[in-house]
Every structure is written in structure tokens, then in C-alpha cells.
Nucleic acid binder design. Structure first.
Lengths: 157, 157
DNA sequence: ATAGATGCAAAACCTTTGCAATCGC
DNA sequence: GCGATTGCAAAGGTTTTGCATCTAT
């Protein structure tokens, strides 16, 4: 977890999570609608903090409202991505995994064995990206940077 | 394309490519068989140097032998991966992409716009991995490290 | 001869799409 | 009311699987 200004009044969620007002405002600005289904997807998104598979979101939404259909989830995710609120990467199995598009650039360490993920950022990442850019003139899309491997506990076993 | 020691005698392939004898030997050791189909997949693999999508391999194999079926390609790829001869990552769209499992650790810069890939290795990568390991005790699976972004020419446009 | 591989066909999986009905604005 | 959004159902693309047949060893 990267540090940031925490501890305001009860209402706002964790940093890095989807902010409610943003969604409503952005939708209105584009003459789009805030439907119950969209609320549900946003709610589900903010429950899994950090990384969610589209499938997980579908499951969660459907278990709450049996009439919920997958296509709505996918369409909503596309929309939220268009609005710049979330981004997606592909997980170890190639499935889409969504995350709030927060400002602080960070990458993810993902353990292939236990699936645990850990965010990294700061200098160790910045230095590396800087080198890549200087040397190859390549702009890394950091939010899509997933680093697979084995975490400490799984490495020993 | 990275430079490499080209131009030896006709027989041996480039470094980093699948070595023929290896496959035969490994198969024999396990009492597995060297079938024409397996030859074909290996041949196709070594034609795309570096990164191939399963679909590309299927296409290539089928265009050469119309009786070739996708399942054989997938089964062969699984086998080669078991044997440790290839590994796979997931490309920008989440599809499986295979590459020879060569010794020199390297990662890939993959341009989201034009799809070009570039291998990186050496110190800039080593330093970064070292930091990750020291700091998080995380063993990065380098062959699966795909770094998405925009290459020089696509960044300007 | 025999265990291992293939082809075939069907299914599983995830995601997208067209369209008529619905509902937020 | 109008137009955006949904549910439904079907299709799309990729990968997996079961089984009878075939073949490399």
C-alpha cells in the first residue's frame, strides 16, 4: 500500500478506490445515466480493493440480483474505462482484471503460487522506468505492469 | 530485432531458438514420441523468432497440412512447456504467446499501439530485479515479464 | 504389440453484439 | 418523450476434453 492522505470523515473511501461523486459527475457531463446496474458494478468494484476479474464482478452482481446479466457488467466496465476511472490488465491466466485508475504509478507483484498481489512504486520502480525510457525511448504503461513470480513464503516451499 | 551472432554453418539455429536435438532427446527420455505433427509445431515455433501466438501456430500448421487440428497444437505446446523448452506469457489482448525458454533472462517491451516487441535484459533489468528481491523477497519470473507501453515512434503520433 | 498421439466433434469459457423492451433524465 | 441502457439470446473466438482410431517405437 502506498502512503497517502488518509483519515477524513467517514464518507470517502480508501484512497485508490473509486470515488462515488466522480462517477455521477462524469456520467452527467456526458449525458449518460446512473442506473442501478451501474451503481452495482461500481459497488462491487470497490469491494475488491485493487484487482478484480470481470468474472468475479459478474458473479458478485448476479448473486445480488439474479436478473443481472454479464453483458451489462462488461459494458459498464468498458464505460468506466472510457471515463478513465478504471484500467485493466490481464492476469496470470490471461483474463481481464480491473483496477481503479489512481494517480500514483505503481506496478504489481503477483505470486503465481498463492495469487497474492503486492503493489510496488516509488524509486525502485521509477529508476527502472527512467532507464527504460532513456535507453529505449519506451513509455511504460505502468498501470498495466504485472510482475509474476513467487512471493517469499511460496518461494521457500 | 536484437543483433546476434549470425552466420555459422547451416545446421545450428540461432541462439534462443528451439534446438532440434533437445526435443528428440527429451522426448525419448520420457518414452514420448517424435511425430510429424510435433516436428511441424517445433518448426513453426522456430520460424517466428521469439514470440508466437498459439493461433499463429495453428494457422501456420494448418496451412501446411489441412488435416492438422488445433488441439494437436495446443497439446504439443503444453508438452513442450512441460519439457521446459518453451514458456508462455499473455499478450496485450490476453492471448497465450509462446517463446523458447532460453537461459538469458530477459523481459519484453511490448508496444500497445503497433505491437512491436523488444527484448531487454542486462543490468537495467538485473538491478531492478535485485531491488525487488532484496526489498520484497519476491522471485520474479522474468520470462513472463511483459512491459506494455508505447514505443518511440508510436509515442510521438 | 502396445502405449502414446492424433483427429474429430463437442463443450467450456470468456466476451461481444444486435435488437426489442425498458427506464432515467 | 427521447434516447440511453438493459435483458435476452445468439454468436464469436480461443482453449480443453473424451473417445475411437491410428502409429511410432
Amino acid at each position: 500500500m502506498t502512503a497517502s492522505t488518509a483519515g477524513r470523515s467517514p464518507a470517502p473511501e480508501h484512497p485508490g478506490r473509486l470515488q462515488w461523486p466522480d462517477v455521477a459527475a462524469l456520467l452527467r457531463r456526458r449525458h449518460l445515466r446512473l442506473t442501478p446496474q451501474r451503481r452495482a458494478v461500481v459497488a462491487a468494484l470497490s469491494e475488491f480493493d485493487g484487482h478484480v476479474t470481470a468474472t468475479q464482478l459478474v458473479e458478485r452482481c448476479v448473486e445480488r440480483d439474479p436478473d443481472f446479466v454479464p453483458s451489462t457488467v462488461y459494458r459498464t466496465l468498458d464505460l468506466l474505462e472510457d471515463l478513465g476511472l478504471i484500467t485493466h490488465i490481464h492476469d496470470a491466466e490471461g483474463r481481464e482484471e480491473f483496477q481503479p485508475a489512481d494517480e500514483a504509478p505503481h506496478a504489481h507483484l503477483i505470486c503465481r503460487v498463492c495469487g497474492a498481489t503486492h503493489e510496488i512504486g516509488g524509486d525502485e520502480l521509477g529508476d527502472f522506468l527512467g532507464q527504460i525510457h532513456r535507453r529505449y525511448h519506451f513509455d511504460v504503461d505502468v498501470s498495466h505492469l504485472s510482475i509474476f513470480g513467487r512471493c517469499e513464503s511460496c518461494a521457500s516451499s
